[in-house]
Design a protein around this nucleic acid. Structure first.
Lengths: 358, 358
DNA sequence: GGAGCCTACTTATCCGTTTCACCTTCCTCC
DNA sequence: GGAGGAAGGTGAAACGGATAAGTAGGCTCC
């Protein structure tokens, strides 16, 4: 009989109640650690639940007003760029670390554009499939922000802080790291430092470009920004264009690791030597940056950490309605083999170029 | 009043029923396209549902015996290798393509080891959180297979076919592609062709090693296999070791793209020229293979396609109990810039080495 | 012209959990 | 010695949708 119950039917709190000789309500209180039940009875019930191998039916739990027990993440970049952006996998790993420790699920969806992304939010929320969402790649005048606020869907934006309204947000101090990189290159003696940016609609792209322009201006250096669609081919193409110029930059800062690796490949293909002929810096360090030759100097951010913090902020929002708006530590410049003094730089110039000289 | 209903409370089928002047049951039949309701009434109900912006509450639907409306995927590789394996992102993109077109969610979980992975399956199934799972990286004597069969959890293994019991499975014909690669290298005149394999516990690793050994034997060439943990550092290290040998291989086949990129970096670091001094082949093509210099010759599989097929097989299993066991088309060798004749190869040797000569 | 059978519904029950309102006991306190 | 209150429960009603069983009404058919 007991075996039958175990094998054929799911174990429910009714089974536990029967066995413990108490009511379903009592079992529920016991299992959820709520008051209204004596410690002795609670332990007895917990023991029986364990013996019977009981797990809460998530649907029933969700239906009776509680949580869905899941958070959502929509990735809206085209599938082709998704695959090689290790950023997302690292982010997901970080998010999972936090969620799984609290037995909250992560529901993923890959879509083509922002419209589809917003439709997914509407559907998820209406279906009560998720308790909240993590939103990546915030943009200028992002329609998702308004949509989410209107829905009342708990959300944490990974990115910002500008343009994210009053929603919870976790961002990285990109501006600070950009300043570090540009100053570092200038200290090496570089004057023509170009920036190969990602999609201009992204807030992160704008923030970095702004910081780049400001720092270049501060150092009285001529800025040069080209944007890409984050595709590797674009990275290679713009690198070839930049380096074919008679006034080619002596240093290039890329907005992603793929762009940088592609740029390194393009430079090699042109017969240039890195870092002798040109210095390259990648944004977001990764295994690939470390194993190509020469290994790429890169800005390393704690992406899993950002994911964890985002997830924690989301749970805090869901559980207690707490709005979090936090900036992470700035990315760290990992100097490796792709940065050196510019060609023809006078010896000793590695100390100069600071403080608006030139 | 209607506004209030819209804003404060969720729209339920009871609201629709009230508005349409029919019973809840009728509405349910109409919305689910089941018989027992006239076409006129059905259309009227559908119209009202649409006007009211109704979405089914997934919890309620799941509770009343129907589906959870979600499939699960557990990734058990250590987070560090996860991040740079574009394989998973491509797979996920493919899975999503199939699932989202049927409005089925994908629930993801990242864990550290097989034990944890199996615990997740138990929990998900007991909680009725998923209707089925996709299982990656099948192993020799994989404990997950038995566990899943015992649970009665619908599952599709991505990999196989050996060792996957009677479960549904979708695999790629790795053996065939290995034969192609080895023969291609032999035709170029290579005799010392080494294989840098991944984790030996994986079925895929074993299948490829077996095919490699068989083909080398068939060609009367001396085999050489080294295994790694799939980490980039291992790829670089074993490459250095192989190439430092007085009887160094003239060609190396890698079991992943990361290993190959790392190997290429290591070769360059040693001052070798690729492909003049050594030829390299990557397994699983990716953007990175294409943008490094020289671009890597690689075996290209349709990974999103495998994900889609796996997802479709899972839905077929869940809906109709259909077991699928399908092999995909074999991977295609993309010859690029890292393969050429071996050093000191006699001119014209590119035709030889076939058919067990030597 | 009534048996038989569709069609187009309605009614009631169930899924498993949470939670609210209520009910006993037993203890305390003046 | 009875009011007041807390502790430790009980019982029933949600939650929103699926579905089996029941029921009118109209049509066919001999």
């Amino acid at each position: 009989m007991t075996q039958k119950t175990n094998l054929l039917r799911r174990v429910t709190i009714a089974d536990i109640a029967l066995r413990a000789g108490v009511s379903k309500g009592a079992v529920s209180y016991a299992l959820n650690g709520r008051p209204g039940i004596s410690e002795v009875t609670r332990q007895r019930i917990l023991k029986i639940a364990d013996d019977l191998g009981w797990y809460p039916n998530s649907a029933a739990r969700a239906l009776s007003g509680a949580r869905a027990g899941a958070c959502g993440l929509v990735l809206a970049r085209p599938a082709r760029t998704l695959a090689f952006e290790t950023f997302f996998m690292e982010l997901i790993a970080g998010i999972e670390m936090e969620l799984s420790s609290r037995s909250v699920g992560l529901t993923l969806q890959v879509v083509h554009d922002l419209e589809a992304e917003m439709a997914v939010y509407r559907r998820w929320w209406a279906e009560r499939r998720v308790d909240g969402v993590l939103v990546v790649d915030p943009r200028l005048d992002d329609p998702r922000i308004e949509q989410i606020e209107k829905l009342g869907l708990p959300a944490v934006i990974i990115g910002g802080p500008e343009g994210t309204g009053n929603l919870s947000a976790v961002w990285s101090d990109d501006a600070g790291a950009v300043v570090d990189v540009v100053r570092y290159l200038a200290r090496l003696g570089h004057q023509r430092i170009a920036r190969v940016a990602g999609v201009p609609e992204f807030l992160s792209t704008e923030a970095r470009t702004e910081a780049y322009l400001a720092t270049m201006a501060e150092l009285s250096l001529p800025p040069r920004v080209v944007t890409t669609d984050f595709m590797a081919e674009s990275g290679a193409r713009v690198t070839r264009q930049l380096l074919a110029d008679p006034l080619a930059p002596t240093a290039i800062i890329y907005d992603s690791e793929v762009l940088a690796v592609a740029g390194l490949g393009a430079a090699h293909e042109m017969g240039l030597s890195v870092p002798r002929d040109v210095s390259l810096v990648a944004w977001d360090d990764s295994t690939y940056c470390q194993v190509v030759h020469p290994p790429l100097t890169a800005v390393k951010r704690d992406i899993p950490g950002m994911g964890s913090h985002g997830a924690r902020a989301l749970l805090a929002l869901i559980d207690d309605g707490v709005i979090t708006r936090t900036g992470e530590a700035r990315g760290q410049l990992m100097t490796r083999g792709t940065t050196a003094r510019p060609p023809h730089a006078p010896v000793g110039s590695s100390r100069g170029a600071g403080g608006g000289s030139v």
